[in-house]
Each structure stands twice: as structure tokens, then as C-alpha cells.
């Protein structure tokens, strides 16, 4: 059964100043799938995921060639507002980055900057997002306490809730468990599997077991190239490329 392609990178070359960090990337992201991007440090995987919601534009000397599309439309086109892309393509960062506000305000923030003024609607969204991110039971009695008082794992799930509140279509996870303990990691992974019913998910991870556990498709990046991209079971059982095999069997990385 062929799934629908939501996002597509085609012939993407990416440079920081004179340095080319991504070479000829071609990658399809399927609807309601989890696509994992794996590879050793510095292979360009985080750089790549940040292209998908145009976060790369925050770096002043970044340059991109090729195209990235969302539902067939080029998201890099000059007439496209990056704000609109980031609303549709949400992102959860490597290090939990709750704002130093209350739990409630953290989630309301995304709605407010997008022009939502209706307090009832915001309230309803806060509850709904916290439930979706499996955090509701733990925080329902202290919504107005500082988000910084939550544990690392709870903070990361709050960041996920914050992201879900603005109803994105695609959610990008940039090594979401890199700073979490195993139990929190397990919770986030369970959440990702739950979320893929409603969202299209891309996750960057340096943890191969994690990629194997949560993803449907896996891309292996190495030195700025996409060495291999296939169904996750294929990548982990019958990789075609020697480098992929060496990496997943732990011979380097």
C-alpha cells in the first residue's frame, strides 16, 4: 500500500558560507508515518530537519539549492511566508526549551502569536494538547506554575504539547530524547507512535534502537549525503550500502 507523500526534498544542496553541508538530498516523507533520520554526529541530519520548517534561515550565511515541497508546493518559494510554514510544520528541539512562563502560558503562547484571542478556545486547546502529549494527569493541578519546575522529560512533553496546540500537519523532532533519561525516553517514544495516527512525523536521532522502535522509514546520513533511504525494516535487516551496514552494526559512529 503506497502512502501519500507529504513532504519531498529534491536535489537539495545546502551551504553554510563556502562549506557544503548537504549534498544532493532526495527524500520523501510519507503521511502518517514516522521518518527517522540517523547518522553519526556532524553528518548533516539536524541541518536537514531544520530545512523542513525553514529554521535554517536564522543563520545568516546559509544557502540552499534544490527544492523542498509540502503537499507539492515549494516551501522555499519567495512568496511563501516562513511563519506559515512553521505553523504547519512544528518542531520539537533537542534540549527541552519551555519558556520561563507557566505551563498554561507555554501552550497558550503559540495560539496567541497566531492571533487566537478567544480565552475559552485557548483553555480548551491547553487541556487537549496536554492530554495528547500524555502530560495532563501529571500537571492538571498546577497549570499556572512555572514550566521550569517540571522534570526534563515533562518539559519535553510540554514542548510537544505546545507544538500540537497550533495544529501542525507535520511534526519535526530534533533528537528529542538526547537529554532525557530512559524512562522519559520511553514515554516520548510511546507518544510519537501515538501521534503518528494524526500527524506526519520526522525524527532525527543518533540512537539506532530508537529509530528501529518508532519509525516506518529510515534515512541514513553520512558526511552530508543521504547514503540510503528505505523502509526501516529494510535498513536494519538488509542494508544495501556497506556504510549503512557498518553504522547500524556499530562499527563506527
Amino acid at each position: 500500500m503506497d502512502k501519500k507523500i507529504r513532504m519531498k526534498a529534491k536535489d537539495v544542496d545546502f551551504y553554510y558560507g563556502p562549506v557544503q553541508v548537504l549534498k544532493r538530498i532526495d527524500l520523501d516523507i510519507f503521511e502518517n508515518n514516522v521518518t527517522a533520520i540517523i547518522g553519526p554526529s556532524g553528518c548533516g541530519k539536524s541541518t536537514f530537519i531544520r530545512l523542513l520548517n525553514r529554521m535554517h534561515e536564522l543563520v545568516s550565511n546559509a544557502r540552499l539549492e534544490g527544492s523542498i515541497t509540502l503537499d507539492g508546493k515549494d516551501i522555499m518559494a519567495p512568496e511563501v511566508d516562513p511563519v506559515e510554514i512553521r505553523r504547519k510544520v512544528g518542531m520539537v528541539f533537542q534540549k527541552p526549551n519551555p519558556f520561563p512562563k507557566s505551563i498554561y502560558e507555554n501552550i497558550a503562547y503559540g495560539l496567541e502569536v497566531n492571533g487566537v484571542r478567544d480565552r475559552d478556545f485557548i483553555e480548551q486547546k491547553v487541556v487537549e494538547s496536554l492530554k495528547k502529549s500524555a502530560l495532563w494527569e501529571e500537571v492538571k493541578t498546577r497549570l499556572h506554575e512555572s514550566a521550569l519546575r517540571l522534570s526534563g522529560g515533562q518539559q519535553q512533553r510540554l514542548c510537544i504539547a505546545r507544538c500540537l496546540a497550533i495544529e501542525p500537519e507535520v511534526v519535526l523532532f530534533d533528537e528529542p530524547c538526547a537529554s532525557l533519561d530512559p524512562i522519559s525516553t520511553h514515554k516520548v517514544e510511546a507518544l510519537i507512535l501515538e501521534l503518528k495516527k494524526d500527524y506526519t512525523i520526522v525524527i532525527v536521532t543518533h540512537n539506532m534502537q530508537q529509530a528501529a522502535r518508532v519509525s516506518d522509514h529510515t534515512g541514513f546520513f553520512y558526511m552530508g549525503e543521504l547514503v540510503e533511504f528505505d523502509k526501516t525494516e529494510v535498513i536494519f535487516t538488509r542494508p544495501r550500502d556497506k556504510r549503512t551496514e557498518d553504522y547500524i552494526t556499530g562499527r563506527f559512529g
Binding site: M55, V83, R86, G90, N97, V113, N114, R162
Partner: peptide
Amino acid sequence: PRSYREGALALGATKWQSIRTN
């Protein structure tokens, strides 16, 4: 921290919104 700015922008805030509120 840069993460305050990035966090806001990733939620669809404009640059000025992220600066003003975050």
C-alpha cells in the same frame, strides 16, 4: 538563550513577536 527565540519562531511567531514577547 537562543532557544527562546527558536521556540517562539517554531510556533509560527513572527520575528517581532518572538522579540517582544519572548
